[in-house]
Design a protein around this nucleic acid. Structure first.
Length: 268
DNA sequence: GCCCAGGTGACGG
DNA sequence: CCGTCACATGGG
């Protein structure tokens, strides 16, 4: 058990922030998270969280996964004080962190995400995991399927996961990765622009999905994905263009605060 | 029945 | 370069 006290670590906000689809609050203040081949349970604290794992697991994996070396208070302090909207969004989103998730999983889940709401994305993801993932130590829970597993799936089987018109996107992306036509590890060394370009060679990946993968898998915190929600917020509060230059190098953090704020507002 | 969801690719101008 | 449109599926 690892207890982390940190005012910028809020499990519920992270789970609801739309960046991850396999972190769920299974009981009040208790969270289940599946990442790569790992299953983790966590408990929310007022300011922080308890990680149910060994110190070694925390230090070697989860600390980095939750980006716990970064100072999010500093990011929030950079918010333009004359920008009342972002000031409020950043305060509301205090506790959100940008996770370092698996590139392959992010690629597929964000290809699926287009024209779906978050519950639907989660349902599709769980369907894929249940059908082609590997069970994690007799828990009945499954890891996200490896590329070869999805590459070998039939279109008909994929269709039963409610992928709709995205079936060819998922199938072709899986083939590209499993055949080595895109190397998701190797492209990590590219700069932001080249990385986005490489990701967008995958069918079904445009600027929005590419930026989400850059941000949530490769931790390119300058990436600023624009979806319908962000688009609305930017139109409404910034006349159509967010001042990314004011947040040079970390606009993606601001993007996440704005996205969370938009979802919270909708859910009221 | 309608509208919408963390968009993209094809097509025509 | 731009704008428009179809693309499955499920929930409100």
């Amino acid at each position: 058990m690892i207890k982390i006290i940190n005012k910028d670590l809020n499990l519920r906000k992270i789970a609801q922030s739309g960046q991850c689809f396999r972190m769920n609050e299974t009981a009040e203040g208790r969270f289940q998270l599946i990442a790569r081949d790992r299953l983790l349970y966590l408990t929310a604290l007022e300011d922080g969280a308890v990680f149910e794992c060994t110190e070694k697991e925390y230090e070697s994996f989860w600390k980095d996964y939750f980006d716990l070396s970064a100072d999010y208070a500093a990011y929030r302090a950079a918010v333009d004080p004359s920008d009342a909207f972002l000031t409020e969004a950043a305060e509301e989103g205090r506790g959100i962190r940008i996770l370092r998730q698996d590139p392959w999983e992010m690629l597929i889940t964000f290809i699926i995400s287009q024209r779906k709401n978050i519950p639907a994305i989660k349902a599709c993801t769980e369907a894929l995991c249940g059908r082609w993932g590997v069970e994690i130590e007799d828990t009945g829970l499954h890891s996200f399927p490896v590329p070869e597993a999805l590459a070998g799936a039939s279109d008909d089987d994929l269709k039963h996961c409610s992928l709709g018109y995205r079936v060819p996107y998922v199938r072709d992306a899986a083939r590209m990765v499993s055949e080595g036509r895109i190397d998701l590890e190797a492209i990590a060394k590219l700069d932001d622009e080249e990385l986005l370009e490489a990701l967008m060679k995958v069918p079904g990946v445009g600027p929005k999905v590419g930026n989400c993968v850059s941000l949530f898998a490769y931790h390119r915190i300058a990436a600023f994905p624009i979806d319908v929600w962000i688009g609305r917020m930017v139109d409404e509060h910034y006349g159509g263009r967010f001042p990314v230059e004011r947040y040079e190098g970390f606009a993606g953090i601001m993007q996440q605060y704005i996205f969370y704020h938009a979802l919270q507002t909708k859910n009221k």
